[in-house]
Nucleic acid binder design. Structure first.
Lengths: 128, 128, 128, 128
DNA sequence: GTGGTCTAGACCACA
DNA sequence: GTGGTCTAGACCACC
């Protein structure tokens, strides 16, 4: 599990865990059926409490990405590729919509927003 | 002061006030030198507490958009148009960068992000 | 708040709280807009921990029956009567379906099930 | 032994085994005196652990449906037909009573419960 | 005052 | 070993 959390990060620890596991599932890095580490194990690795990890797993289960079986462990759910792509796009849309709404309400023009985003994306592509 | 706040909105009340006053200053709706309503007056109008408005004004002062003279009141600072535009773009950049970073880290491609943003902007332009 | 919990009851404490508040909302005993007691207050009343009550409120929020505003409190959501009735029937259906399925799979005939349920209901109606 | 267990099923594995064997005994599918498969054999068939099956047999013995003779095996006890029917109805009553109690406490009317159960039973009878 | 998050322990049921 | 629940504290942001 390549997961990094930091209490410096403004978002709660459990949310950081959720975000990273969700990304790995939606990207296919975590294949369907894969067993996640037990909550105790992950808590130890991340130097955090069992409850924090449990809460993260609860959120992932609620959003239907993993399934937890009492006394057995947690497993990545079997999602169709098309579903994975749909969820991914939906999540991305939420994130971007909030930002575009805010920028727009601040009075930035569509052209400005477009060009700002374009330049950010060029940088991302160069980094790769 | 055309300000609307709602406790339904996930962002804190004081932040909603900050955002709206900042927008009005950066857009030029609030001209340099304009006196803002007193803390008590605005609190009454918004049906909120004095503390909440005070905190909003403090934030605006900290970011250099208003200046408060004790016993006199708060006033919009004198910004050059070029500065106003710069601040505006800087604020917008922050908002958008965070969202693009997040969408990118979730694994969305640059093309997908570009097209999602483009479609959101088209909607905005149609609404107008 | 007329709520009673007991650690004797096999279902978890937080679930008992959820069940009782849900019932009161769906029956209309708790009118839309009503403020629920704060988590600390209810925890004190029920001689349980803050976290247990919080978890109950979280579940109620997730199922859309209450809304929680940080620093303010939790409130009963405004549901149309028709919606209330629908949710109530849906919840009831779930409970009953599970039992009927089980009784049926045990080999009880439809007639037996019907008569058992009928006699239970007669008793309930007499009690009233 | 026609037994199917699944860790997807919310009820514990041992309970699923108990339920199915009990049903077969009470329906007469498993005649009095019949030898049950050995714990090890059944565990192998069900791809589960010996402990799980052992616990299931213990429960069945506790409720008086089977008898285990060390070193020999487990056998279906000799129940009169009238007793079988009584036990069956008693078990069914327990299951149904719990559900009716819950539905009633949620505020469903007797009429609603009656009609919900009736419609479920009609469906069951059609399926046959 | 409110809720949101987190910790470091504990006990239980299940496999 | 696993997860599920619970406790009794703590700190923080917000109102």
């Amino acid at each position: 599990m390549n997961i990094l959390i930091s209490s410096q990060n403004p978002s709660p620890l459990y949310q950081q865990i959720v975000d990273q596991i969700q990304r790995q599932i939606l990207c296919g890095e975590l294949a369907p059926g894969t067993a996640l580490p037990s909550i105790r194990e992950l808590a130890r690795d991340l130097l955090t409490s069992v409850i924090t990890v449990k809460r993260a797993y609860m959120e992932l289960e609620r959003s239907g990405l993993i399934i937890t079986r009492s006394g057995v462990g947690s497993f990545v759910v079997d999602l169709k590729d098309s579903d994975r792509k749909k969820v991914l796009e939906q999540e991305g849309r939420l994130v971007l919509q909030a930002a575009v709404d805010k920028a727009w309400s601040m009075g930035l023009s569509a052209a400005t927003i477009r060009s700002l985003v374009a330049s950010m994306l060029s940088e991302k592509e160069l980094e790769e």
